[in-house]
Design a protein around this nucleic acid. Sequence first.
DNA 1: ATGCTTGTTGACACTGTGCCAATAGCCGGG
DNA 2: CCCGGCTATTGGCACAGTGTCAACAAGCAT
Lengths: 193, 193
Amino acid sequence: MAAPRLRLAPAERRQQIIDAARQLYADRPYDDVSTAELAEAAGVARGLINHYFGDKRELFLAVMRESILMPERALPDYEGRTLEERARLTMDWILDAATTYGQAWIAASGAANLHGSSDIQAIVDEADDRAARLVLDAVGLPDSPHLRARLRPVAALTKAVCREWLQRGSLTRAEALDLLTDSLLLFVRKEPT
Amino acid sequence: MAAPRLRLAPAERRQQIIDAARQLYADRPYDDVSTAELAEAAGVARGLINHYFGDKRELFLAVMRESILMPERALPDYEGRTLEERARLTMDWILDAATTYGQAWIAASGAANLHGSSDIQAIVDEADDRAARLVLDAVGLPDSPHLRARLRPVAALTKAVCREWLQRGSLTRAEALDLLTDSLLLFVRKEPT
DNA sequence: ATGCTTGTTGACACTGTGCCAATAGCCGGG
DNA sequence: CCCGGCTATTGGCACAGTGTCAACAAGCAT
């Protein structure tokens, strides 16, 4: 049973550890899972984790980076549609993505600077920012710092609504779509100055 | 200098510990501050923390409960105003509260179930729920489970917008007020079914 | 085969947490 | 005014979890 000490390429082993960790973190909180467990799940000595990631937290961050970011995959092409239509289609696509993909995304909502020196907050922020850019592109608007600042909160809103819909069942999908579409339009329009 | 072992009423000492802890947690993440520090800051032996709270996490939760919840203080009376006016006045009041009060509130945005078995998430949820009720009352609408489900995400949105405004400076107060007011109206109106 | 490179291991030291019996404030009765 | 008891408070103990590091060995090159 004792795995006869296999030797892998660094990138490969690194990924293997991350994958094992992701499964554990999927339904257990950060400080509830020990490095010992992490190591065992990956079939690896405890020391190796420190060797590759230096730190337990750093491994966690690596996992988050992988699971939180929305798929870069380009959105469908909405050439020729009106702004309203594009907004709705985009939100619809996001809701789909959330269903299959976004458990971690929703969960991490705002992992908050409570947690660790706000490293996590930074990652969540980056995810939101990326989502904002994605949406701007999909809707066909130019990418400006100000517009992005307006859209980042929409990402937070989206996550909260998805939580109500998916985890609490207190909103229907249709209702969520309506609300989010209108919100998106609201935040995109009425530029001041 | 050695404090000659003062004996206090349980409630008093408990509060004293919480207050000291709050200051530490104000600008340092949870697991970065040790029980030793907590104890020293409160001028108390380490064991006493476990005596009163049982657990380090439990103390943290106690602090959160105190700092996250919005002031219960009743909102001004908006008798005779239109819905739009009341929405704007309410949001204006909330923005004020956020300025002075809500650092922790914003910070904790969605402390997430990553952190600890989702105890914290529960607290944040309660805070959001309370905020939702508060707003419903202020705006003069009946308190229904469904309306509350719609308003909780607005709480998340509000926090995100406040973060852009207060911490990043990427939105002006006026802009934030506009966006939030319209959003609030959006989520309150168009009841389905 | 044999040596070298480097991925991998296991043991060690240390910090931080929770627990518990011992200590000593404070308030009451004598 | 002194004394005894209730209980708030302490300090030390045991243990779990983390990071470090020198030694080990798998695979490649020669």
